[in-house]
Computed example of a mutant assay.
Amino acid sequence: MTIQERTTAADGTAPCDGTGTGHRAVGAAQAPGANGPWPVDIGEDAPAARGGHVLAEAEGGAPDVVLVATGADVHIALAARDILQREGTATRVVSMPCAEKFQAQSEEYRDAVLPPGVRARISVEAGVELGWYAMLGGAGQSVGLAQFGVRAPYRELHQQSGLTAERVAAAARTRLHRAT
């Protein structure tokens, strides 16, 4: 399976381990990567079972920016986080394999993952951007692919359409500036 052939469970869950996409299996997933597949726990007690969780915490205190991504797009968010952290912007990455499951969690849990005080939120999604806006709030932005039907290797598609860590970092800088 290639990374652009993302499969999801019937409930829409697209698990990841920060390196790629998951193959659905009973209680686990296989995430392909440069050194082969790694098992990814998607059982009842796994963080992914709650629909969304903090994958990489902001260094240096509370986050200034939250990047939210799913499945195969998490690596872009993690790379953007690296850029922003080097610039001194405390950046959290949230893995959101299933927004519906996340919305079903307690308000306390949702606020712990997506702090209400952090208005600079960016979603990273190779699919449809529309569903993200409710979670991003008024100062948020969705960075994604705005076209469908184009065929090319995923890296080439991402570069051509601007779904890159650099674009995500630029969107985060802009939104952080507007939110303050």
Rank of each mutant, 00 (worst) to 15 (best):
M1I: 12
M1A: 11
M1R: 11
I3F: 15
R6T: 12
T7I: 14
T7F: 11
A9E: 05
A10D: 14
A10F: 11
D11G: 09
G12F: 01
A14H: 02
A14Y: 02
C16G: 14
D17S: 13
G18T: 04
G18V: 05
T19C: 08
T19F: 12
G22P: 08
R24A: 12
A25T: 14
G27E: 13
A29G: 13
Q30I: 14
A31G: 13
G33C: 06
G33L: 06
A34D: 11
G36M: 07
G36C: 07
G36T: 08
P37F: 15
W38N: 13
W38M: 11
D41Y: 07
D41I: 07
I42C: 12
G43V: 02
G43S: 12
E44T: 11
E44Q: 10
A46D: 09
A46S: 15
A46I: 03
P47E: 07
A48K: 00
G51R: 01
G52W: 01
G52V: 04
H53L: 08
H53W: 15
V54L: 10
E57C: 08
A58C: 08
G61C: 06
A62F: 03
A62D: 15
P63K: 00
P63A: 04
D64T: 10
V68T: 07
D73Q: 04
D73L: 02
H75I: 13
I76K: 01
L78D: 10
A79P: 11
A79Q: 04
L84V: 01
Q85W: 02
E87P: 08
G88T: 00
T89N: 02
T89Q: 03
T89C: 06
A90M: 03
A90D: 02
T91P: 08
R92H: 09
V94S: 04
V94C: 05
M96P: 03
M96A: 12
P97W: 01
A99S: 09
E100V: 11
K101W: 06
F102A: 04
Q105L: 09
Q105A: 10
S106K: 10
S106V: 09
E107G: 15
E107I: 14
E108R: 13
E108A: 15
Y109H: 13
Y109E: 03
A112I: 09
A112L: 09
V113T: 10
L114N: 04
L114F: 02
G117D: 06
G117A: 12
A120V: 00
R121L: 10
I122C: 05
I122P: 06
V124R: 00
V124W: 02
V124L: 04
V124S: 02
E125D: 14
E125R: 03
A126L: 07
A126Y: 02
G127T: 01
V128Q: 08
L130K: 08
L130M: 11
W132E: 02
W132L: 00
A134L: 10
A134D: 15
M135N: 06
G137L: 04
Q141V: 15
V150A: 13
V150D: 09
R151T: 14
A152R: 06
Y154M: 10
E156R: 13
E156C: 08
H158Y: 02
Q159M: 11
S161A: 11
G162E: 03
L163A: 09
T164V: 01
T164Y: 06
A165S: 07
V168C: 03
A169N: 03
R173M: 07
T174H: 13
R175Q: 14
R175P: 11
L176K: 02
H177L: 09
T180M: 14
T180C: 13
